[in-house]
Amino acid sequence: MDYFLELFLGGLTRGSIYALIALGYTMVYGIIELINFAHGEIYMIGAFTGLIVISVLTMLGWNSIAIIILAALIAMLYSAAYGFTIEKIAYKPLRGSQRLSALISAIGMSLFLQNYVLLAQTSNFLPYPNLIPTWDFLKPVGHIVRSTEIVIYIAAALVMVALTYLIKFTRMGKAMRAVAQDRDMSMLVGVDVNRVISFTFIIGSSIAALGGVLVASHIGQVNFYVGFIAGIKAFVAAVLGGIGSMPGAVLGSLVLGWTESFFTGYISSDYEDVFAFVFLVLILIFRPAGILGRSDTDKV
């Protein structure tokens, strides 16, 4: 039973992590119908920025709680700035051209960012200090769940609540929904589409950065390549839930997290990554709209 619980909570952790990344994918896709390949790299840059802040402040002898909070905030700020800039350089000039072009541009951006971090920092895995304290009340169940994981659950839940509020009840949220529905029409009725798109990238990127810092703390290491595989898996989750749908992204992430966890726990861990891809292929073939997605017919 303990083993089951461990796998269950492990799956929940994975799912929450995927959700933090998948939300950005799904938001961007909902608005400009682009698979933002560079999103995984934004996540990685968030983790790296966090590591840099942590290293510098640790050297200065700050309190560890203050460090982790500040590191997360600065990482979010920087990833948001990267997301914003990437959109301006690689995607905005391609609006209105073929989707294939934007997709190739996104792949190029992803490749560039990976190698940018590789060259500026290092290709090695760097140990990532975990500054989240181990809480006393968790000691009895310490072999099943760690405090970092609890923080990840809470962060994911808070982000979801905040996003739901943002989309449902704010002016910007309304504008985002309008642009997702029909970009040209929104422009006609006076929505500043460029601003909405930038805002979407900023929000999606900062959520990914939060995920980056937490995950790296949890796993304990980071390198320039962690964004790619995490990005792909989060994308699988977004598609599984129904791309463009935010509850879908969360649901898809949890489903993927649990299936992966139980699969590797009970069956085999050799093919862990294969499994996610097989899952993706199967979903796309049998239910391309995802669990919560609406099946869209081409506009003719």
Binding site: I89, A90, P93, L94, S97, S101, A102, I104, S105, I107, G108, M109, S110, L111, F112, L113, Q114, N115, Y116, L119
Partner: peptide
């Protein structure tokens, strides 16, 4: 090399 490849992909598309 790979950095430049990335730049090439973006610039060519733009």
């Amino acid at each position: 090399r790979m950095l430049v490849f990335g730049v090439i992909l973006v610039l060519m598309m733009v």
